[in-house]
Write a protein that binds this DNA or RNA. Structure first.
Lengths: 205, 205
DNA sequence: TAGATTGTTAATCGATTAACAATC
DNA sequence: TAGATTGTTAATCGATTAACAATC
């Protein structure tokens, strides 16, 4: 396991993995840095450089065996296993996430769903029974869950994050439109559709 | 309007804007690059440099008037107006987006919702009547819509994107787990929860 | 062999940070 | 005035790209 890989490189690997999986679905068995780069709109040199941090996965003259490269990237990203994920928030967005079928074959499985509304606690949501947010610590700790998704209003997000982290969570996907303050051994990714759209309006005439 | 601002700078402005709005909600009237940087986990120098691309918004010794800075950033990002947004896909995720209350005061309003399922077309979804995807071109063009959200399966996403773009859309928020090929005058932002989580598992022990 | 493509090095390009004069 | 903080310059740091020997 090589050390000190730039985070920006790590950030591109899941995109490569997704594109490679799709190439495989389309029946391709081999690809090249040029082909992949063209699909993703990035340079072939960048792809080769990124991959070379982890080893030589290709062959001169022919390129990359897609199946093999997918396997290697899964290992690098540690998604050659299934991570249990906690979901906090059973509103519209939380429900959509709970029903989403796309986690399983990419390394994740929602393991429990929390909500703080007494009306919702005990109700079924897809395959889950909604648990009280009071039970976050107990459940997270017992199952050893390291990853959580936060899909609640901004006002409660920091408090919930603190509790998740206290219970052992080390990676948070935050849908609440607010920045979280977390210790440096905890990683956060943000999804806020408005932030993403505001980033594009600048370029509209 | 200054030219040639790095895109990475543009990408941070919505995050600044969100944090400033929250500071205002909390009752602050003034802030500094240090305070804002601390909240966001970035350096004060970066914030000052980023803002300085667009003008001197602060005052030595005292910092930034939050209300004024919010106003200026909204202008820079062109979200001092309300953009009409088309939503394609009325599944779980599309429904969650259609019901989301957080667009309005940040510059966006969903204007129409499309789905290709005959069962759904004509049904109500929140304030909308679901339209057939066959009518995408007509509606987008008539209303002059420039922004769209795609919340459909990967298989149909490229085709829908092509049609949206053909009808005049110039910015796409893509929730489908696939890379889109678009002309260079069209901007795309990607939201794929799995990609975001795979970016974090690398760091988990 | 001839053509293609990798992995890697060096050069270029761009972004971040440190530092400080200006000034509120 | 004294303390604080901006806007900006120069220095540092890091990422991307170009180029090519190696080799399939």
């Amino acid at each position: 396991m090589p050390a000190n890989i730039p985070d920006i490189v790590i950030g591109r690997l899941p995109v490569y993995l997704r594109a490679l999986t799709r190439l495989a679905q389309e029946g391709h068995e081999v690809t090249s840095s040029h082909e992949l780069g063209q699909r993703l709109g990035i340079s072939s040199a960048q792809i080769r450089k990124d991959l070379s941090h982890f080893g030589g996965f290709g062959k001169q003259g022919t390129g990359y065996q897609i199946g093999y490269l997918v396997e290697q990237l899964r290992q690098v990203l540690k998604v050659d296993q299934e991570w249990e994920v906690a979901l906090v928030g059973a509103g519209d967005l939380g429900s959509a996430l709970a029903h989403y079928k796309g986690f399983g074959d990419r390394g994740f499985r929602i393991a429990c769903v929390f909500d703080n509304s007494p009306q919702k606690v005990g109700q079924r949501l897809g395959d889950f029974t909604i648990l009280s947010t009071d039970d976050i610590e107990k459940n997270i700790r017992e199952r050893g869950i390291k990853i959580a998704m936060i899909a609640i209003p901004a006002e409660k997000a920091q408090e919930v994050a603190d509790r998740l982290i206290g219970a052992g969570v080390r990676a948070i996907l935050n849908y609440a439109p607010i920045n979280l303050n977390v210790p440096e051994n905890v990683r956060v990714q943000y999804i806020d559709p408005v932030v993403h759209m505001q980033r594009m309006t600048y370029y509209l005439t």
